[in-house]
């Protein structure tokens, strides 16, 4: 995935069963952000793999004051890339199990 300067990781082990998972997001490279960024630390949140879209979560982060509006797309992309990887891993897991 492209290096957006924003890192998203699983905040808990993925049991491949729940649609809602805990994710943790933090900024690794503030220079890659367009807007001013105040170092808040890591932001943990829950995300529903089936019902939610990364853009909505990114927008909520902006509205909560974590990021500037101009970085909504960057944050959304970082979440989308991680979510895609989690979904891919789950599908692979299921196909291996048969």
């Amino acid at each position: 995935a492209e290096d957006t300067g924003v890192r998203v990781e699983l905040a808990e082990e993925d049991d491949c069963k729940k649609s809602s998972i805990a994710l943790k997001l933090w900024v690794e490279d503030p220079k890659k952000l367009k807007g001013k960024y105040k170092d808040n630390g890591a932001i943990e949140f829950s995300y529903d793999l089936e019902k939610e879209v990364p853009e909505d979560v990114a927008q909520e982060m902006v509205e909560s004051g974590f990021f500037h509006e101009s970085d909504t797309k960057t944050v959304a992309k970082s979440i989308r890339d991680r979510v895609a990887l989690i979904k891919w891993r789950r599908e692979r897991n299921w196909s291996v199990k048969g």
Binding site: R7, E9, W26, E28, N40, G41, A42, I43, E44, F45, S46, V57, E60, M61, E63, S64, G65, F66
Partner: peptide, 27 residues
């Protein structure tokens, strides 16, 4: 420690905590 919580009006909860040093050194 410095853990805080922000609840968005849509109901989502954001828990903010320091980034673990091990994570920062990963890259």
């Amino acid at each position: 420690s410095s853990i805080s919580q922000v609840v968005h009006s849509a109901g989502r909860r954001f828990i903010v905590s320091p980034v673990p040093e091990s994570r920062l050194q990963e890259k």
